[in-house]
Design a protein around this nucleic acid. Structure first.
Lengths: 166, 166
DNA sequence: CAGAGCATGTAAGAAGTTACATGATTGT
DNA sequence: ACAATCATGTAACTTCTTACATGCTCTG
């Protein structure tokens, strides 16, 4: 078998599958507009990734330029669809905590003096409401994001209450 | 000012601060035993990281070998403590979704045929309960993990119910 | 006395990052 | 006409990864 897809590769293939066909530029923009700073949405990540996926036979490209401006659209092959679905249904990966910057920090919150602890936790509570949902990803994505935000807020509240009782 | 710490660097400094002094090996083991597959806990990450932190003046090391087996313990300098607390109280980073493998997949769940959707969601629900808490991190860490797991379970349940109503 | 675990580290490579370079098109 | 956006891509660099290499110490 082929080596498993990275998280970024999986998301790119999934995005292309959902939209039917996308240019590398559009893929890059989707990452750039995502709420996570961890996806920089850099050309230097996306263009070589597309080449990699094409070399593995997961995407095919078509030049659809209509004038002098280039436009190369990528779409999934059958193998690409299969690989994408394999990534998507990998439950072992799915249950992994991944990189959770808030969780990492709460784990060590006691290393901060108490006044800075309170300040940090209040700032997080305030700023959390403003995290934008992914763009153009439809109703499901917005619902998922809303529920996610809500559950994180409750998690943080409960943890703060626990700290108070300590 | 100096460039900000990576997530891994921040966690290493925080760990050393909590324990007082640690060898690179102990730091590496802590990552290896963590519930996330994303932290491989490789020597090739930790040893160069320690060198980096020492070059920036964030840690100092002391040879505490008592026989022929080497043992070099690292502890934080004042600058290291300051940098660690800066990382820890960075609320902008803290509210970032980071890499969330479950969230990424749920965002695209519709790309799976319905029977595979159900299968995937059930597997995640079952396996989620078995995610181990971080080792040796104390009562707070265990409470944090417990609350985190619970909030994720509820998030997933609510989303599944939403999907059912679609 | 063998194997697991402690302890150090390096080498090669993967997959990101920022920054740069080029040019076409659209909107004000 | 000028700026913003569309669109492609490369170069240098950072920080991880896996795999290897070496040797000491404790336990069954």
């Amino acid at each position: 078998m082929n080596q498993p897809l990275t998280e970024m590769e999986g998301m790119v293939l999934a995005q292309i599958a959902r939209e039917g066909a996308l240019t590398a530029y559009e893929v890059k923009e989707a990452f750039r507009l995502s709420p996570s700073q961890f996806w920089s949405g850099s050309a230097g990540a996306v263009y070589p990734l597309m080449k990699r996926m094409q070399d593995r036979g997961y995407v095919k490209s078509k030049d659809v330029s209509q004038n002098k401006r280039p436009r190369r659209e990528f779409s999934l092959t059958a193998a690409g669809k299969k690989a994408m679905q394999g990534w998507l249904s990998d439950s072992k990966r799915a249950i992994d905590p991944g990189y959770d910057p808030l969780r990492s920090r709460l784990l060590f919150i006691q290393l901060l003096p108490e006044n800075r602890q309170r300040q940090f936790l209040e700032q997080v509570q305030q700023q959390m409401a403003t995290i934008p949902a992914p763009q153009k990803a439809g109703e499901i994505a917005e619902k998922l994001h809303g529920l996610w935000l809500d559950s994180r807020r409750k998690w943080l509240d409960r943890f703060i209450r626990f700290l108070g009782r300590q």
